[in-house]
Amino acid sequence: MTTLLTVVAFGTAFWLVVVGAYGILRSDDLVHAVVSLSVAQSGTYILLLAVGYQRDATIPILGAGGAGSTPIVDPVVQAMTLTDVVVSATVTALLLALTVQIAKRHGTVDPDALRELRG
């Protein structure tokens, strides 16, 4: 069943991935490029959560009724999203650290000005 909410969620996910990638493409600042990468990744969060969404379902914490007593949203995609957030934090931190070091060594954070590697 395709509801308006599903369309909006999948559309937003697609938009975020594409706009994030476009941000890296047109970036003139490495900090901006790294943040754009995070934007692209946010698209994957929305996609995953949209996949697990169910109308009128609650959070996946089972109460006294036990499994099956109330409809819950899919906990697997939530676990995947959390894993993804952890990975994102690590990678973003690492890339920003590299950017700081690039600013020290190259004297610039403009990707257009990094001309050391080519050919």
Binding site: L37, L95, I102
Partner: peptide, 21 residues
């Protein structure tokens, strides 16, 4: 080395996110 590492990081991470999609 920094430039190579950063390029590696950004391109591979983007690839991983598309795989996740």
């Amino acid at each position: 080395s920094l430039q190579g590492g950063l390029t590696f990081g950004i391109v591979n991470s983007l690839g991983a996110y598309l795989t996740l999609c």
